[in-house]
Design a protein around this nucleic acid. Sequence first.
DNA 1: ATGGTAGCTAGGCTA
Length: 262
Amino acid sequence: MPFTLATWNINSVRLREPLVIDLLKAEAPDVLCLQECKSPVDKIPREGFAALGYEHLVARGQKGYNGVAILSKLPLEEVGAEDFAGLGHARHVAARLPNGVVIHNHYVPAGGDIPDREKNEKFGQKLDYLTDMTKAFEADRPKDAILVGDLNIAPREDDVWSHKQLLKIVSHTPIEVEHLTAAQEAGDWVDVTRKDIPEGPLYSWWSYRSPDWDKADKGRRLDHVWATPDVARAASGSRILRDVRGWEKPSDHAPVFAHFDL
DNA sequence: ATGGTAGCTAGGCTA
């Protein structure tokens, strides 16, 4: 059962319902994982998605902040949700496809501006979220699984516009990269996007604060698609839809796609 | 060093 999967930090699913619909019409992924829905689950505008064949939805939500959703043309079996770092936020949800593959959709805390947990509680929460993720993978090694989402960390030098200038900027500090790498290794996760596109600059997010984001191109790769080795072997054709960042009233993130021939 | 923009929701928090 081959399928195409996409992940996109939508920054309000209600405000950007028309953009979601445009993406579904243009690219028709089988599964679309959204982050930062900023909506209670019962207020997600699912009718417009269902009309395009996306009849299945598994989500966690809260008013105003966070929120994750898995939207699918294929049936979804809800697997549940974790509350890593005990924040009580809607940052994870998981669902199983008919072929048995479990999809984990994460929105990792951004972590505030100061990369020091003594001075900034939110940075500590971000590291704790990743540590809890690592522990969960050590306790229960994932199998036949995909993990996607806004992980809010750009791990590689070529995942940011300037490695040197971002070393002390939250999202690219060494301690964050260490925590993310520990989680990745604990789950034996393969970075599918970099398996398919091994070389060169690759970004999925450009700040709203940068005028002329396209020309300046001060991006970071914060959005990721990981898979367990067996599933990753079946992956191909990964791409980041940079053009979507240039749509009218855009999200600050571009969608990331991967195809799986399973 | 600072400020730059956006969403939610009505002043400030979060990103």
